[in-house]
Every structure is written in C-alpha cells, then in structure tokens.
Simulated assay, not measured.
Amino acid sequence: MTDTGLPQMVIDARDVTLTLGDTPVLRGISLSVARGESVALLGSSGSGKSSLMAVLTGLERASGGRVIVDGLDFTTLGEDALARARRGRIGIVLQAFHLLPTMTARENVAVPLELAGVTDAWSRAGEELAAVGLAHRMDHYPSQMSGGEQQRVAIARALASRPPIVFADEPTGNLDTATGERVMDLLFARQGALGTTLIVITHDHALAARCDRTVTLADGQVR
C-alpha cells in the first residue's frame, strides 16, 4: 500500500497500441495491476492477450501509449536497457516448459541465476525446487520427469530470482486437467508466499476465475 492507503500499481499501461506490419494487434488498451494481485488476461486465440503480455514484459515494443512496469517506463528504453530491466523484475512461465534437456532440474533453475550474478544460485535453486515439491528430483533430467514435474521446474525457475511480477502464458496448456489444477494450486501458493504479482494468460474461464480479477480481451481491446 502507498502512503495514501491506495494499492501500489506495479503495472500501469495507458492507451497501448501495437501494429505489426499493417495489422493493428492492440487497439488502445489501458490496464493497471496492483502489487501482489493476480489477474487473468482472458480471451480466445487472436484476441491480443499474448501480444499484450509481450508488450508488458518488454519483449515487444508498443507502437503507441505508455507502459510503466515496476517504476520503469518501458516505452523509453532501448533494447539493451529493456533486457536489463526484465532481469530480476519479470519471471515467465510458458505453456511449453523450455527446459534445457542436457541440464538437471537444479541446473535449469540455477544457471539463469548464475548468469544474472546471483552468488548463492545453487543453494537458492535447491530451495525453490524443494518449495515446489521436487527436492527428490533435483538431479533428474527433463526426460526423466513427467509434464507436471517439468512445469514445476519451470515455475521454480521463474520464481527463483524473486521477481515482483510473474507472467504465466497458458501454463496448463500441455497438461491434463488434474495435473494442470495441481500445478496452478502450486503457482498460486508460491505467489501468495512471496507476494508476487501474477498475470495469467488463458482462454480457460475456470482458470481465470481463480484469479483476483479477470480482464477480457477481444479484437485487441479490453471488453
């Protein structure tokens, strides 16, 4: 909370547009997200939700409008500055797990931390894997783990740097219903424990309903 008693906004996007080639993808979207809040970006394929995530994470530059993320104006930063801004501020969990097959679970979590200059990367990776129930799987490779276990490694990797914001893009898309629910139980539990802001990109109304708030997109606009 701020001194005024109002929640602190960790994301504040105003009149954001995105045009790719001659195609308008985002059409004047405004969105504010409070620190610690969980928000679902709900919409069908082609609604603009993944494009909005790309803009909010600095992976895509907005064509117009303003994007403030954790106090930084992403619309004024160059590519190198955006890459530095993402590091430590934003964690991302994707539908595809994107684990390196030649690395163990612990290495998949620790190596990004080491590259970011974290001095206790190895021990922190172990702690985060234990927190997602994988203390017994740290030395296993992705091919030796189930899809649910791999997604838990991906969650540990996203949260290990303690970013204030985590984006989860269709995080249960490659999992069966029961496994997906368990993974989301875990993700929400870790979000609550760490006070992380969580943005879930989904087309699943049931998953969206688990978040504090749902923002529905259609045709590149908030509906």
Rank of each mutant, 00 (worst) to 15 (best):
M1H: 13
T2Q: 12
G5W: 05
P7F: 06
Q8N: 13
V10D: 09
I11M: 13
A13Q: 01
D15I: 00
T17A: 12
T19D: 12
T19I: 14
L20H: 08
T23F: 11
T23V: 15
P24E: 14
P24R: 03
P24L: 01
R27C: 12
G28S: 02
G28F: 03
S30L: 04
S32H: 08
A34M: 05
A34V: 05
E37P: 05
A40Y: 01
L41R: 01
L42E: 03
S44E: 14
S45R: 05
S45G: 10
S45F: 13
K49S: 05
L52R: 02
L52E: 09
L52G: 08
A54G: 15
V55Y: 00
L56P: 01
R66N: 09
V67S: 00
R84P: 10
A85G: 14
G88F: 08
H98T: 06
H98I: 01
P101I: 09
T104A: 08
A105N: 07
E107W: 03
E107F: 03
P112L: 10
P112K: 12
E114H: 11
L115Q: 11
A116L: 07
G117Y: 13
V118M: 08
V118T: 14
V118E: 15
S123A: 15
R124E: 12
G126A: 03
G126Q: 07
E127S: 15
E128L: 11
L129Y: 01
L129W: 07
L129F: 07
A130W: 10
A135V: 07
R137E: 10
R137D: 09
H140Q: 15
Y141D: 01
P142T: 06
Q144P: 01
G147F: 02
G148Y: 06
G148P: 05
E149Q: 15
A154P: 08
A154R: 02
A156Q: 04
A156H: 07
R157S: 11
A158E: 09
A158C: 13
L159E: 04
A160C: 08
F167G: 06
P171F: 06
N174R: 04
L175Q: 10
L175V: 05
A178L: 12
G180V: 01
E181A: 14
R182C: 05
L187E: 00
L187H: 00
R190L: 14
G195R: 01
T196R: 07
T197H: 09
L198F: 03
V200R: 02
I201F: 02
C211W: 08
R213T: 07
T214G: 09
T216M: 12
T216G: 03
A218W: 08
R223V: 13
